[in-house]
């Protein structure tokens, strides 16, 4: 899931100030905390109030989309409203906001949120954790399943650095664990320090450079769909 944070209301208001009719689109997809129809309504009320305070009348409608990052779903759900509204405010992550802008070329969609990271939900610790940074070259097989790219503050491939103290990381004031000490301890537990000792050569960052190449994945889905149709 994608961890998001609502932008300051003033910042959102600044974006939509030039418009008097806006559509507020929630997303029922994976964004956390959830930003669905209720959140869209609350945002609408806040923006209306803010407009009133500035002597403006704002007309708005709240709705929600199953997944804004899917062009078919987002397209079919949002399109019926487009004629009535001048602009869209999206409560999805950056993927959803971008998707709406790309499929609706004649309408501007503005982000109501800041997207933080892709996360795993860790109920045990009551936390969301960024366990992967989609680096294109998975090292988890050498690191006992703990990602040095996402979980080490410096993304080191041959850690730990000199900044760890008693297993805690210098970044964030020694509050968070040093990923490389976690890796060391877990490899040691499995008697696999041979993997710790291994030198990992410089990474090929072309594999991590944006934009990501989505057409490959699309090809897979098409192929699977075709297979299913044939059956």
């Amino acid at each position: 899931m994608i961890i998001t944070k609502l932008k300051d209301i003033d910042e959102i208001y600044e974006m939509i100030k030039p418009y008097s009719k806006i559509l507020i689109a929630g997303c029922d997809g994976c964004c956390q905390p959830p930003r669905s129809i209720n959140e869209a309504k609350v945002l609408g009320q806040m923006l209306e109030l803010k407009s009133k305070m500035n002597g403006k009348k704002l007309t708005w409608k709240a709705m929600t989309v199953l997944r804004q990052c899917d062009d078919r779903i987002a397209g079919s759900t949002v399109r019926p409203y487009l004629d009535e509204y001048e602009a869209i405010v999206s409560l999805a992550c950056g993927l959803g906001v971008s998707m709406l802008n790309r499929i609706f070329e004649d309408t501007l969609t503005f982000p109501a949120q800041d997207s933080m990271f892709g996360a795993s939900e860790n109920h045990g610790d009551n936390r969301y954790e960024q366990y992967c940074d989609t680096c294109g070259e998975c090292l988890l097989g050498e690191t006992a399943g703990i990602c040095p790219v996402a979980s080490c503050a410096k993304g080191l491939h041959n850690g730990p650095c000199g900044g760890q103290v008693d297993g805690f990381c210098e970044v964030g004031g020694y509050k968070y664990p040093c990923a490389w000490i976690q890796i060391y301890e877990r490899l040691k537990k499995f008697n696999r320090l041979d993997l710790f000792n291994k030198f990992r050569p410089p990474k090929d960052y072309r594999l991590m450079t944006s934009p990501g190449h989505l057409e490959l994945i699309q090809e897979y889905t098409n192929a699977i769909e075709e297979e299913e149709v044939e059956k």
Binding site: P160, V165, I181, Y184, K188
Partner: peptide, 11 residues
Amino acid sequence: NASPREAEILK
């Protein structure tokens, strides 16, 4: 001053 020391030595 690093602890655990073995991790430092191996690194």
